[in-house]
């Protein structure tokens, strides 16, 4: 259980903003921080990991105090047993993928974990390459493996998938689910992608200007609990057609483009780039092998 009660004044651009948090995250949960840029998501990860300190408050993890402003307790980042994947991956450019993993191994710890992670993350073929020879998805997998070498209890992911193309993204989401369960992690993901959030996480915290404005089950949050569809997907609007009497909206769901018919009056609600939920209530979907 991670309990975070703290305040910190942040400076984003030339604006001052107060990050004011009261969050608790259950052990083993996969949660997402969602919200616009500069709303305090990454700062919260940095506070949990100990890379920065708050102005006032406390951080408790499994009833151990990690940080307490008044009691002057501040557990060092390395002692917090956290795996952290940076947005820019932060792989060490002077080391090969394997050396990156090896460097992360704590003293006297068994090397077996490295071999295990190489197998899970499919890194065998790229072990001897340096980071600038790796593709985005490969870097990501190495960064993820490196974050897990010290067998952390908590995994923090700062928009790790945002720079990847769709196919890579979907693949890495599966890796994330796999390791989250295998290592019994408590995982916190920063993400802007609604589909990704619904697929991966059990709980979402929505940030706005340093405060949590909503939290709860991602499906309920993003569909406002309005539909009880039997069958639903999230996607992104890529094109809107005005026909004579109806509107047609093309939605990208995963790698497929789906056309959805709607009323002309409804059309105004949508614009290209919107995240939408496509669902069906009345019909039974057909399923067949391909």
């Amino acid at each position: 259980m991670i309990e975070l009660k703290l305040q910190k004044s942040l400076r984003s651009g030339d604006q001052e903003m107060l990050l004011d948090l009261d969050i608790s995250i259950k052990k083993g949960e996969f949660v997402t921080f969602y919200g616009e840029s500069g709303s305090g998501k990454t700062s919260t990860l940095r506070l949990i990991s100990g890379l920065v300190e708050g102005d006032s408050g406390t951080i408790f993890v499994d009833n151990d105090c990690w940080w307490d402003m008044n009691a002057k307790i501040n557990l060092k980042p390395a002692k917090r047993k956290i795996g952290y994947v940076f947005q820019d991956y932060a792989l060490f450019p002077n080391m090969t993928a394997y050396e990156n993993l090896e460097f992360a191994l704590p003293k006297y710890q068994d090397k077996a974990i490295i071999d295990e992670l190489i197998a899970i993350m499919d890194l065998k073929d790229i072990l001897n390459l340096k980071p600038d020879m790796l593709s985005g998805g490969q870097k990501q997998r190495v960064a993820l493996a490196r974050a897990l070498v010290s067998k952390p209890k908590i995994l923090l992911l700062d928009e790790p998938l945002s720079a990847l193309d769709n196919i890579m993204r979907l693949k890495l989401q599966d890796y994330l689910i796999k390791i989250h369960h295998k290592y019994h992690l408590t995982t916190i993901l920063v993400s802007h992608d609604v589909g990704e959030i619904i697929k991966l996480s059990q709980k979402v915290f929505e940030f706005q200007k340093g405060k949590i404005i909503r939290s709860g089950n991602p499906k309920e949050i993003f569909t406002h609990g309005k539909t009880s569809a039997k069958f639903q997907f999230t996607g992104e609007v890529i094109e809107i057609f005005h026909e004579k009497v109806i509107g047609i909206i093309s939605v990208l769901i995963g790698q497929d483009i789906v056309k959805v018919v709607c009323d002309l009056s409804e059309l105004e609600e949508f614009k290209v780039g919107d995240k939408v939920m496509v669902g069906s209530k009345a019909f039974n979907p057909i399923i067949q092998k391909i």
Partner: peptide, 20 residues
């Protein structure tokens, strides 16, 4: 982030300076 990654991996400043 390289320095921060090293500190999260438990490396002290001297190690970080010489190895990273």
């Amino acid at each position: 982030s390289l320095t921060e990654a090293a500190s999260l991996l438990g490396k002290n400043r001297l190690n970080t300076l010489f190895y990273i």
